[in-house]
Amino acid sequence: MIKGLILKDLYVFKSYKNNIYSVLIIDILVIFFASFKIEMITTGTIIFLISFGLNSISTFSYDENADSNKYLLSLPLTRKKIVQAKYIFAIINNLLSFMIGFMISFIIALYLKSDLSNIVNNINICLLAFTGTSLLICTDMPCIYKWGVEKGRIQATIIPVVMVFILAIILFVLFILFPNIYYLIKIDTILKFIPIICLIINILLYVISYFISLKIFLKKEI
């Protein structure tokens, strides 16, 4: 059943494949031109990862335009399966964009004969961009389930900004209260743990977001 739902969203992707190819080409060009200055390679990669990784959200618009959820729920599908399929599709899409984005930047870095530290750094940047995209997806989806695509996206834009703002205030207060903390934080150590930190954050984001979306969708009258 979930396979069918994922297939449905893939058909949506297929239908605007020209748009996807255009985004892909533009992003490759951005990475390519940015990478003439090796420090800039990350900018292009981040742009690619976010723009490509968020594509899955557009499938909600297609569902909403055809009022598909009503019909899907009349089929042998449960609300839980519909939400699960959306999350699986979003995660697969985000992972794919991570892999493609990393591969492109890796190839360009090799072409430019960049050293290993730059490549390792690039992996970390890709992981951070992947996590950032996950944050956007995970705030978008519950908002869309709650308010629909139009209103939901406005709320979904506000929520991450508020979250980052709150985090900045917390850090600011921490630095004011404990000025020595700055010297205790070792950036090199943190960088080593970026993959595991990103993994934990991503798991937490998707799990929390999924349960919020499911709770909303289970109660929603369609």
């Binding site: 069918g4 449905k8 569902d63 019909y71 089929l75």
Partner: peptide, 29 residues
């Protein structure tokens, strides 16, 4: 639910699908 067939006036699959796509989806459902 497999024993029920439904036609809704205002709700169906996305209009960008064709009948072959729909067949593949229904086979999954």
């Amino acid at each position: 639910k497999e024993q029920i067939g439904v036609l809704l006036d205002d709700s169906f699959f996305s209009p960008i699908l064709n009948v072959k796509d729909i067949n593949k989806l229904m086979k999954c459902f």
